[in-house]
Amino acid sequence: MKRAAAAAVTVAAVAIVLSGCAADVDELRVTIDGVTVTAEQATSIEAQREGLSRRDSVPEGTGMWFPLEPAQRTEVWMQDTRVPLDVVWIRDGRVTGVVTLQPCSTEPCPREPSPGAVDAILEAPAGTFADVTLGAAVDMTRSEP
């Protein structure tokens, strides 16, 4: 009985900690050429490697923001990604390129190089940024919880 009670307390404590973490997810509202998405930030190396892979869907109006410091040439690949995505390359608050990539489940997956050094990448469902112009300003604000 004591073990069951202790286990219940532990499960409740873990649930509280995890729900607290979810509330602390750092999100940005990113607007480009009048299109706004709420983007999770992938700030750790692990989060940037994982990206939006292994998700069965990426809802319209959402995406993922990858800050890169310092600005650098980089590549994106779609290994284990299940949905097509738009990739927006960004440097100094301006769009330097947009490409739509398809899911890949084979090895090796093709890699899409950035069009020069970039300091951020934004990924969103395919078609979200189809009409974005090169050089468009990227406006970011923190999302309110």
Rank of each mutant, 00 (worst) to 15 (best):
R82V: 02
W89L: 05
T106N: 14
P59H: 08
P115H: 06
R54H: 14
G97Y: 05
F66D: 08
P84V: 09
D86K: 07
R91C: 05
R55S: 13
R49Q: 14
S114Y: 03
P59T: 04
E50A: 15
R73Y: 14
V83Q: 12
R55G: 10
W65S: 12
G97E: 04
P103N: 08
L122K: 11
E123W: 04
G63S: 02
S105R: 15
M64L: 01
Q72M: 12
E112D: 12
R94A: 14
V118D: 03
S57K: 10
G116V: 04
T106S: 15
A71Y: 03
E69V: 14
G116R: 05
E123Y: 01
A120K: 03
L52V: 08
T106P: 05
R91W: 03
D80V: 09
P125E: 05
F66S: 04
R49L: 15
D56C: 04
V118R: 07
F66A: 03
V99A: 15
C109M: 07
G61L: 06
R49D: 10
A120P: 01
R111A: 15
D80N: 15
M78D: 09
P84I: 07
G61C: 11
L52N: 02
Q79F: 10
L85Y: 12
T62R: 10
E50F: 13
V88D: 09
R111D: 07
G63A: 03
E112I: 13
A124T: 02
W77R: 10
W65I: 08
P67D: 01
E75D: 10
G97R: 05
L101Q: 04
I121P: 04
G61D: 01
W89D: 00
A120D: 03
A71N: 08
G61E: 03
R54D: 14
V87E: 10
L101I: 08
R82E: 12
Q72C: 06
C109S: 09
V99I: 15
P67F: 02
A120Q: 00
D92G: 05
E112H: 15
D56I: 04
S57M: 08
